[in-house]
Amino acid sequence: MLTPLHKQLLNDFQRDFPLSPTPYRDIAEAIGVSEADVLSALSDLNANNFISRIGPIIPPNHIGVSTLVAMAVPEAQLQAVADKISAYPEINHNYEREHRFNLWFVAIASDAAHLNAVITAIEQECGYRCLQLPLLDDFFIDLGFKLDMSHA
């Protein structure tokens, strides 16, 4: 069960997390609780899998090169193909979507040659073509995600 403190920590500190020696104490002071309360509430959220971590979001293609890839795979083979692709360390996201192109994954590598080698290896191993959809422009200013937790 999420307390008001949990909800406040989830909603209000997705960006501009304090870059000071004692960030959790700064947050505690800002919302009028003790540092121990903040540490304990964040530990709860972490233990219950409500947060993936506290840290930075890095924009795509600023470090290394990456591409989104779409693949059309017969339903019966989808799990097996997905497992082969997930086994590559260069793959981070790998999702099924409701479409003829039903497998969507993101490949990231240190440079373009490495990325091409990974895509070629995946095509050869799986036997399906990779539709490469690298990012050209990012319109989104990521300010975090405003949660509606009225029923949470």
Partner: peptide, 20 residues
Amino acid sequence: RCFKQRGALYQSKPWALAHG
């Protein structure tokens, strides 16, 4: 289905990209 999702990414360089 989500087959794989992680913040840790490429070899020893675990970058969490917004979305490749």
